[in-house]
Design a protein around this nucleic acid. Structure first.
Length: 278
RNA sequence: GCGUCGGUGGUAGAGUGGUCAAUUACAACAGACUGUAAAUCUGUCGCCUUAGGGCUACGAAGGUUCGAAUCCUUCCCGACGCA
C-alpha cells in the first residue's frame, strides 16, 4: 500500500501553519514546509515563519536550512523534501507538507523531473544583457521545438532554456515519475474580503515585530539589496501599504496556480472543525 | 470680492482643434509557468456587440467650427496670490 502524505496548501495568511500543526498532532505527523523563502535563515518576520512556541513540539523540516546569500531552487527543494519524507515514514510517522509555493508542492506530488543542469551564473549574467527577442533567436537556433512553446517575452525562462540547451544540446521534455505516495491535498481558502483583512493585520504585525530591523540585519550580514529584492517586497524598503498590496497580488498568483489542481479539497478556513474528515 | 492657475476614465497623471474611448503608471480582473517561483511573463480593463462596428464620454450648460478633451462665454468646484 502506498504511504499517505498530507498536503496543506493555500494562499498566504489563511492559517495553514496552524492547521498543519493540529493535523500533525492528530495523525502523529511531522511537518515539511513548502515555502520558498522560509528555507532561508534570518528571513523570519517577513516570511511569517512559525515560532517555536507555535510549533507545539511538532518537528518542522526545511525551515532555516540555507544561507540567504546562497541560491536555493525547486530542485534543491525536491531533493531535500523527498529525503525528509523517507525519514519521517521510516520513523513510522506521517509527513505533512505545508506551504504556499505551488511549484514546490507540485514537484513533489506530481514527481516532475527537471533536466539536471545546474544554474550557470556566468552565462546568465551575460544573457541578461540581451533583449528578449535576441534571446529568443538564440534559443530558436539551439532548440527550435522548445522555442515554439516558450513565452517569448519572458527573459528568465528564455535564459534557463538556453542554459539547458547549451548543456544538453536541447531542452528535454519534462517527465513525471509517479511518486510512491498517496497525497491528500487540502486547500485552505478565505473569502476575498476576509483574506484581505487577514493580510492587512498580518503585515501590520510584521512591522510591529521589527521587520525593518530584520532587513537591516540581513543587509549587514552581507545580503545584497538585489538579493533582498528577489525575496520580495518585504525586504525592499517597505511600507505597510506597499507590502499589503504586494501580498495581495501574490495571493492572487498563488490561487491561479492552485486552481488548476483538481485534486485539492478546498476548505473554508473561517469555519471551524475542519480536521475531522481526515 | 478681484486676479492667476487648474478641474480628464477606479486613482495618479499625459494630451491643448481631426490619426482620441483618450499615452503612461498604479489599482482591478483573468491567465501562463521545464532548476530564480512572494521570481518572471501575458491578456482584458467606458457601455453594447452577430467583433465589423454602434453608443455615451475629458466639471456643467451654451456657443464657434465640416470637426472640440482641446477655442469662446457663463456658471459650479479646488489651489494659490491680492484684498
Amino acid at each position: 500500500m502506498r504511504k499517505k502524505i498530507i498536503v496543506i496548501l493555500g494562499q498566504t495568511a489563511t492559517g495553514k501553519s496552524n492547521l498543519a500543526v493540529k493535523i500533525a498532532k492528530k495523525v502523529n505527523g511531522e511537518i515539511i514546509s513548502a515555502d520558498s523563502r522560509q528555507v532561508y535563515k534570518g528571513l523570519d518576520i517577513g516570511t511569517g515563519k512559525i515560532s517555536k512556541k507555535e510549533m507545539k513540539r511538532i518537528p518542522h523540516h526545511l525551515l532555516n536550512v540555507v544561507n540567504p546569500k546562497k541560491k536555493f531552487t525547486v530542485v534543491d527543494y525536491k531533493i531535500l523534501a523527498e529525503e525528509k519524507i523517507k525519514e519521517i515514514i521510516k520513523r513510522g510517522k506521517i509527513p505533512v507538507i505545508c506551504g504556499g509555493a505551488g511549484f514546490y508542492i507540485d514537484t513533489i506530488t506530481k514527481g516532475s523531473v527537471f533536466p539536471e543542469v545546474p544554474p550557470n551564473i556566468k552565462l546568465r549574467r551575460e544573457l541578461t544583457k540581451k533583449s528578449a527577442i535576441a534571446l529568443f533567436l538564440v534559443l530558436k537556433k539551439l532548440d527550435s521545438s522548445r522555442a515554439k512553446n516558450i513565452d517569448k517575452n519572458n527573459k528568465v525562462r528564455l535564459i534557463r532554456a538556453i542554459e539547458i540547451a547549451k548543456a544538453l544540446g536541447k531542452v528535454p521534455k519534462i517527465t513525471e515519475v509517479k511518486p510512491m505516495y498517496k497525497f491528500t491535498k487540502i486547500g485552505l481558502y478565505l473569502p476575498h474580503n476576509k483574506l484581505k483583512k487577514k493580510i492587512e493585520q498580518r503585515v501590520r504585525k510584521m512591522f510591529q515585530d521589527g521587520l525593518l530591523n530584520e532587513i537591516k540585519k540581513l543587509k549587514k550580514s552581507g545580503v545584497s539589496s538585489k538579493r533582498l529584492k528577489e525575496f520580495g517586497f518585504e525586504y525592499d524598503n517597505p511600507t505597510p501599504e506597499k507590502v499589503i498590496k504586494e501580498t495581495l497580488k501574490y495571493a492572487k498568483r498563488q490561487m491561479t496556480w492552485f486552481k488548476r489542481d483538481k485534486e485539492i479539497k478546498w476548505l473554508d478556513a473561517s469555519k471551524a472543525g475542519i480536521i475531522k474528515e481526515l
